[in-house]
Design a protein around this nucleic acid. Structure first.
Lengths: 119, 119
DNA sequence: AACGCATATACTTGTCAAGGTATATATTGG
DNA sequence: CCAATATATACCTTGACAAGTATATGCGTT
């Protein structure tokens, strides 16, 4: 399995990771929220732990899992060159900002301004 | 295959994408630089194109492939909540600053000082 | 000790995707 | 039109991995 990317390629694993963003969770809690069978959850957690995405602590018969940042930062690092690339693409950047539309400041932005240059 | 993550889970595909960061490339160029059989290259390029990571233009019998930013931004977007999480982790932040080393005070850091608090 | 709850692991099976090899398609030059 | 180059596609085989089901392990309560 190896790589960070293979780990997060699995949808259920991404779901679990997303759950853990808010706070640590027990296996049972994950199981219920994601409506997936317990062995599935345990197995994915095993993979995630071995890969360093999460860590666990024991509380009686419960195990609580929480996120660890490092591996995510790897993904972030991988993106760097591409990010450089796409911010060179002025058009793309603009489109992106448009999509996020409600940019914080400057509430006087009337509906959907589009100052495009039609390159 | 579907998801962005499944696409970039494949090492050869990531290699191809990395190659294309610098500039557009023909299939043959990729083939030679990455030392992989031509059908392999073509097949991965097909996947990447269908997934919207690259686009191609024709030049005689050559096809040039180049990056498209959108799907990368999806990955970036997925990272957002986790990024928020890990910048909350003071320790991680500290480690990060440590790595950039030239923190303001105390330039007398001998070799590899680690002033950790063993939380 | 026995039971019950929470979680982990073993084993089997089906699916899917990547690689290899061969072949097809397209374009250029003679 | 023929040959050569560049790229795409078809087909087959293999391996990996996720799901399902069953069972094991660990801990706390009585």
């Amino acid at each position: 399995m190896e790589s960070v990317f293979e780990i997060i390629a699995e949808p259920n694993r991404r779901a679990i990771l997303s759950l853990l963003v808010s706070s640590q969770q027990s296996v049972g809690a994950i199981e219920r929220q994601l409506r997936m069978p317990q062995p599935t959850v345990s197995k994915h957690l095993r993979v995630l732990r071995d890969a360093g995405f999460v860590e666990s602590t024991v509380d009686a018969q419960r195990r609580f899992y929480r996120l660890k940042p490092e591996r995510f930062q790897e993904v972030d690092a991988w993106l760097v060159p591409f990010r450089r690339f796409w911010s060179a693409q002025v058009d793309a950047l603009e489109r992106h900002l448009d999509r996020m539309d409600h940019t914080k400041k400057d509430q006087a932005t009337p509906t959907k301004r589009k100052t495009r240059k039609t390159k």
